[in-house]
Design a binder for these strands. Structure first.
Length: 418
RNA sequence: CGGGGUGUCGUAUACCGGUAGUACGCUUGCUUUGGGAGCAAGAUGACCGAGUUCGAUUCUCGGCACCCCGACCA
């Protein structure tokens, strides 16, 4: 991608209506645009990051046996009345409700347990049909009383929601552990593994605990207590001596921290299968309710968290796995046609080699190009200038500023640092 | 939802009951050129509505929007 063709521009100043670091940097870099409180547009760079994150999650969910689907946002009130969740007060008034032209009420989904369960009724009738796992990347609507923290808590957001359908609590238990491990894989792969802890949290009405994945950050809204040796944590909401005893954690070992909830997994049991009539015949011909679980990750929140946790005073620092491009090629030809031609050719060759390159071919001063490059946070900056030769091309690593030279041959082979 | 605050070019800000200024960005020209250049010339702005007033961007009221604190957060 030639940067001169990219329709977005960077900004020197942060918008005054954003306090959160994630939104400030993403807006300044032209990754996103704020449409209204709690609703953001993804611009080309932002969409690229989003798709990278989605693909990592998709791979992990597929490895769990998940089958990808995509459900409608429109929700049938009758279905939700069966689980007693159509009433606004039952769900903290997060419903966006609207109506069809004829006056029929519909809702915009804030989660999908009900419709997912209903669809599975058409396909699950025997123990031979189980287990089954589904997931989707789907837009959720939540009418939050107060949107805040930039893209971390929006009124419309893309969520990966995964649903498990098992024969028994024991079978769910085994799967639940696998799902937790897959979640840790996701957070490791997107670059925040070192800061993210499996956290015991309230199980609500369904079970003793649910598990959250909490990423330590001063931007977090939750408070957790971390056992750094065991790499687990307890949410302060459920913190008590009894819980610590159950978990075999000593109080002295705990460190308090603010954290961002980047994922959450729940054992639902038969909370939805019973009222909605999702049952199967077991080997003895007896009807039993399906045992369910649900597993969520907010994609935008995860993107915001990566920004919050890894950025520095100059801007965003993307891990290679989710960066919009791998290389930021910056030419400093300043009117020198030879340098310009060299950079053009290098851009073409890198692209042909299958490397994702953002090519800053704009006619600007070096300082401005470097500042933009730092702000955008692409992992490797390749600088083509007066001193560039095939045997010595300058590469700077964004995350630590380390500067080195590499041959053209190595660069095209995907080796960016000597 | 309770409390507090703010709405001025694209962005960030200033001033003012009587011609709305600055910086960045944008256009044109010249000079410059490895860390957000200089000079010159331009274009672009008062959230909406009502009221007070000779005159309102400024004061008052209402609306809307946005931000912050709290509450909330399967």
């Amino acid at each position: 991608m030639r940067q001169s063709h990219l329709f977005t521009k960077t900004r020197k100043e942060s918008p005054k209506d954003e306090i959160s670091q994630n939104a400030q940097l993403l807006i300044r870099g032209g990754y996103i645009h704020k449409e209204m409180a709690g609703a953001y547009d993804l611009l080309p760079l932002g969409l690229r990051v989003f798709e990278k994150i989605k693909q990592i999650i998709r791979e992990e969910m597929n490895a769990l046996g998940g089958q990808e689907v995509s459900f409608t946002a429109l929700q049938d009130p009758e279905l939700w009345k069966e689980t007693n969740r159509w009433k606004g007060e039952a769900v903290d008034e997060v419903w966006f409700k609207t109506e069809l032209n004829g006056g029929t009420q519909v809702g915009l989904g804030f989660t999908h347990e009900e419709p997912m369960t209903r669809v599975m009724k058409n396909h699950i009738s025997s123990y031979r049909d189980l287990p089954r796992y589904t997931y989707q990347f789907q837009t959720k609507f939540r009418n939050e009383l107060r949107a805040k923290s930039g893209i971390m808590r929006g009124r419309e957001f893309l969520m990966k929601d995964f649903y498990s359908f098992n024969r028994s609590d024991a079978e769910l238990e085994v799967f639940y552990e696998e799902a937790g491990a897959a979640y840790l894989n996701v957070f490791r792969r997107v670059g925040i593994g070192d800061f993210t802890y499996l956290t015991f949290a309230s199980g609500g009405v369904f079970s003793k605990f649910s598990h959250e994945f909490q990423c330590v950050s001063t931007a977090g809204e939750d408070t957790i207590y971390i056992d750094t040796d065991k790499r687990i944590a307890v949410n302060y909401e459920v913190m008590s001596d009894d819980i610590l005893r159950d978990l075999g954690i000593s109080k002295e070992a705990l460190v308090e921290a603010k954290a961002i909830e980047v994922g959450n997994i729940f054992k639902l049991g038969t909370r939805f299968s019973e009222p909605l009539g999702l049952t199967f015949k077991d080997e003895d011909g007896v009807d039993k309710p399906v045992v369910m679980g649900s597993y969520g990750i907010g994609i935008g929140r995860l993107m915001g968290t990566i920004v919050e946790v890894l950025c520095d005073e100059k801007g965003i620092v993307w891990p290679e796995s989710v960066a919009p491009f791998t290389i930021h090629l910056v030419e400093l030809s300043q009117g020198d046609e030879k340098i310009r031609a060299y950079a053009d050719k290098l851009y073409e060759d890198l692209t042909v080699a299958g490397i994702e390159v953002l090519y800053d071919d704009r006619d600007m001063r070096a300082g401005e190009k470097f500042a933009d490059s730092d702000l955008l946070g692409i992992p490797h900056r390749v600088v083509v200038g007066k001193t560039t030769t095939d045997s010595a091309i300058e590469v700077v690593r964004r995350k630590n500023g380390n500067k080195g030279v590499v041959t053209r041959e190595k660069l095209l082979a995907g080796i960016y640092h000597a």
